[in-house]
Computed example of a mutant assay.
Amino acid sequence: MLFALLCKDKPGHLNVRIETRPTHLAYLDKLNAEGKLSMAGPFLDDEGKACGSLVLVKAETAQEAKALADADPYAMAGLFESVDIKPFNWVFNKPEA
């Protein structure tokens, strides 16, 4: 099952995002290699700066998706103000597996 991780950055924490980005990308690479990552990318503010993240993960349960979200280096660094986890049904333009 797919879960969307909707992550909102804390205001004034762009430096945390920039400093943590290499370990965050390594974490996403690991999830991708394990077949748990469908897609990921940042939300952008009006100035084009990252202000959050959208990550689609494959997990058996919402609890597993939460564990994946909690293990993200961005989350561990305290970047996120909030993380909403929603079951997701990818209908249009879904890449073939």
Score class of each variant (00 low, 15 high):
L54C: 14
C7K: 11
G52D: 04
E47P: 01
M1C: 10
F80M: 03
A65T: 10
C51P: 02
Q63A: 15
H13V: 05
L2V: 01
D72G: 06
S53M: 01
S82W: 03
G48H: 05
D72R: 11
E81G: 08
G52C: 04
V57Y: 00
V16G: 07
F43Q: 10
P73Y: 06
G35Q: 02
C7R: 14
K36G: 07
A59G: 09
K30Y: 04
K66L: 12
K86I: 10
P11S: 10
G12P: 02
G48Q: 08
L54H: 02
L14V: 09
I18R: 15
G78T: 00
D70R: 13
F92K: 14
K86F: 06
N93F: 10
L79W: 05
L68W: 05
L44H: 08
S38V: 15
L68F: 08
G78S: 01
R21L: 15
L68R: 06
M39P: 00
A67T: 12
G35W: 03
T61K: 13
L25A: 11
R17W: 01
T61A: 12
A4W: 00
L5F: 02
P73C: 09
A69S: 14
C51Y: 03
A62G: 12
M76D: 05
N89Y: 07
A77N: 09
K10A: 08
H24E: 01
N89M: 12
R21G: 03
F88D: 00
S82D: 07
L14G: 03
K86P: 00
K94G: 12
A75G: 02
A50E: 06
C7D: 08
A59V: 07
S38F: 11
D9Q: 05
A50W: 00
K30C: 06
V57P: 00
E60S: 12
A77Y: 05
L25C: 09
K86A: 12
G35C: 01
N93Y: 06
V16W: 03
A33H: 03
A69V: 06
Y74H: 13
E47R: 15
V83H: 04
E96H: 09
G48S: 07
E47Q: 15
K94D: 02
L37T: 06
G35M: 04
E34R: 13
K10M: 11
E19Q: 14
Y74I: 09
K10G: 02
L28A: 08
P11A: 14
E34C: 04
L68Y: 11
D9A: 10
Y27T: 09
D70W: 04
P42D: 04
I18W: 01
A71Q: 08
C51K: 13
Y74M: 09
L5H: 03
G52W: 01
L31W: 05
G78N: 02
L44I: 08
E64Y: 11
P87M: 05
L68P: 03
P95H: 07
D70C: 08
L54M: 14
D45F: 09
D72K: 09
L25P: 02
A67P: 02
G41R: 13
Y74C: 10
A65Y: 04
D70Q: 14
M39A: 15
T61S: 14
F92C: 13
L44R: 10
P22T: 07
C51R: 13
N32G: 13
A59N: 06
F80G: 03
Y27W: 11
M76C: 12
D84P: 00
G48V: 02
A50K: 06
G35H: 06
F43L: 15
E47M: 13
E60W: 03
A59L: 04
A69C: 11
L37F: 07
